[in-house]
């Protein structure tokens, strides 16, 4: 089964089970340290994650807010290399599909083809590059398509319709729909207009629409599903728990379980 097929199956089986949306928790690879991050990913799978989004730590993560930025800095300080983080991904991929989130420079430093090979070797199913918009993506898209990997694009509330159409047409795996204009991070409430944002996205793509950025609580996750999202991505809330908890794996497991319950 290719990565693209595996992601499609995860969304389909979540829907077939009668759940309101697939749950995709995010984690920072190598944070707070390599082995704990492996335990966190496996705890996500145990607690009901349908897919896991695995962040590769980068020194200058422009799309991320302070929580994930700090986690990346700490992971790098703890010595997390890309090889080691992809190794964590391989462990998680034995349980659930893994979608890697990686900034463009880390990919270019290694070479697009070699990076795509490394993803396949690690059993990853898809790739999100937050600073690789449509115009810059053709080379990466070709490398992913050749290997059955899903290059998952992002759309924002500021994305105009004609652009959304083009991005939606090229989307593989799912369409990562950013719920707000901003960087990653917890928000007290979701922006108004989530219904419209999700409807707009769903009208312009064949793949499932997953909503992320600013979703932290079970109530927000349920609201995203209510708005029509077929997938829900939760990041900073979990990374903060991994930073603060005495037993990170058990703590994030609890949170993922409560999110999964809200989507049941």
């Amino acid at each position: 089964m290719t990565g693209i097929e595996r992601i499609a199956e995860a969304f389909a089986s979540s829907a077939a089970d009668g759940r309101r949306a697939a749950l995709m928790p995010y984690m920072m690879g190598g944070f707070p340290d390599l082995e704990t991050s492996r335990a966190i990913g496996l705890a996500y799978a145990d607690a009901g994650a349908d897919l896991v989004e695995l962040g590769i730590p980068f020194s200058d993560p422009l799309a991320d807010g302070p929580v994930i930025h700090a986690a990346a800095t700490a992971a790098l300080r703890a010595g997390a290399s890309m090889e080691a983080v992809l190794g964590v991904g391989a462990s998680i991929a034995e349980r659930v599909p893994v979608v890697v989130m990686c900034y463009a420079n880390l990919i270019f430093a290694r070479g697009v083809e070699r990076f795509a090979d490394a993803l396949v070797a690690a059993g990853a199913s898809g790739l999100i590059v937050p600073d690789l918009p449509l115009e810059e993506a053709p080379e990466m898209m070709t490398a992913c398509d050749e290997r059955g990997l899903a290059l998952v694009p992002l759309v924002a509330p500021t994305t105009p319709i004609d652009r959304l159409e083009r991005i939606g047409r090229q989307a593989r795996g799912f369409l990562y729909t950013v719920s707000l204009t901003g960087t990653t991070g917890e928000r007290s409430g979701l922006d108004g207009g989530l219904d419209e944002i999700v409807a707009r996205a769903r009208a312009h793509t064949e793949v499932p629409v997953a909503v992320g950025f600013g979703i932290a609580t079970p109530e927000q996750a349920a609201a995203a599903a209510e708005a029509g999202a077929q997938g829900v991505i939760v990041g900073s809330r979990l990374v903060r728990a991994a930073a603060e908890a005495g037993d990170p794996a058990s703590e994030v497991g609890e949170i993922v379980r409560s999110l999964a319950t809200a989507l049941a």
């Binding site: 422009l62 600073d131 115009e135 500021t158 652009r163 204009t181």
Partner: peptide
């Protein structure tokens, strides 16, 4: 050169 930025900024 190029435009390696988050999608939110592309319209701007």
């Amino acid at each position: 050169g190029g435009q390696y930025v988050p999608e939110s900024l592309m319209p701007a």
